[in-house]
Design a protein around this nucleic acid. Structure first.
Lengths: 199, 199
DNA sequence: GGTAAAAATTGATGTAGGTCAACAACATTT
DNA sequence: AAATGTTGTTGACCTACATCAATTTTTACC
């Protein structure tokens, strides 16, 4: 198998049992794209017409509220990514998707996606499994940013998304748990210091 | 058609084109349950084995963080409801689902759900559409509670979920936008007063 | 390898919304 | 219709985190 497609195939295997035949069909409609760091996949207001798979690099989702960028997610290599509301409903995206490293993406258009659903026997199961997984991810992000104090949100993020914790730059992690970079830095300092005193 | 099933049928029609034949098959496996106000559908730690439809009343989802109840959603009549992570993955629920009025529920078990997916021709499309809609709802809840100040979160909730705004008690709305009841009351007061002065 | 840009740290100060507590307005039960 | 519980309002005070700004550290680029 072509080398650049192995991660993709592996991910699909995790999500569903795709026959070789089906995979070959799917493969024939895949498209490819590279992004330089800081380039945009989608900007707010545009309609997101593709479902992406991050083959290399990281893509962050953020929106702007009261003039401030709020990062809501970072898609790591080996995961699907899109602006869901925009892709599924064909409405303008509320969010921006931006490469935070150089990236290699695999993607299919909405049309191709619908073709996959209607022609591949495993297509709908695959889509259901992807959606389920992403729904649960979103729940986790949501639940971990509710009413906990900043330090606990920080720890929770580490628990739930250890991979992100390792590779995503601090400033984006900070934004994901809704604290400012300065506060984030203080949290880290507090955690690294061998418990001075707490009165 | 039986009266008690009309809202359910109407909702399914909105989400997918279910043939009469398929609907009859589906109907034959539906189960029914009533809940008194304050009764629980699911408690944290239990495994949620059913997919519910709220036929009458309201069910709220909440979790407890640092000893405080945080309401994350209220399912109004005419909508599906479950503890998604628990139902789909068969793991203990992080959330509690509690009736906030007397309720009438229609539900199917996980087994029945899988039967629907594999036997009804429209089953998977239906499931996909439900999941899509709920994913987008969750995104909306998530995005509207990010970094906006309390007053803007309040307004946003009103925009995005006008039905909820009308029928859900203040204390739950407050919790949904992550403010305390006291603060919520002050927000409402501020909005109702004909702009005294803002310096 | 030197310079510029980006990311992270630290200090001083400010404030939105939390906390606590008392009370008022409704609802529900008997 | 009295009693009890639930929900919403208001006041006085407090604190976790934001803000602003200066500096250091790290990374990226001719």
């Amino acid at each position: 198998m072509k080398e650049e497609i192995q991660l993709f195939r592996k991910t699909l295997n995790r999500l569903s049992n795709l026959s070789n035949d089906s995979f070959d069909k799917l493969y024939s409609i895949l498209e490819f794209r590279s992004l330089k760091k800081k380039e945009f996949l989608i900007k707010e207001g545009e309609i997101c017409r593709n479902l992406y798979f991050v083959n290399k690099g990281m893509v962050r989702t953020y929106l702007i509220q009261d003039g401030i960028e709020v990062t809501t997610w970072v898609a790591l290599a080996g995961n699907f990514d899109t602006s869901a509301h925009s892709f599924f409903k064909g409405i303008p995206s509320l969010t921006n998707l931006q490469a935070i490293t150089d990236c290699e993406l695999i993607f299919i258009s909405k049309n191709a996606y619908e073709q996959v659903l209607s022609t591949l026997p495993e297509g709908k199961d695959l889509a259901l499994n992807i959606l389920q997984e992403y729904y649960i991810n979103l729940e986790n992000m949501f639940y971990s940013c509710l009413s906990l104090p900043a330090l606990e949100r920080y720890n929770k993020l580490g628990e739930l998304f250890p991979e992100h914790f390792k590779c995503v730059p601090q400033k984006y992690l900070a934004s994901m748990i809704r604290v400012k970079e300065a506060t984030m830095s203080r949290l880290r300092k507090k955690l690294s210091q061998p418990d001075t005193e707490e009165v």
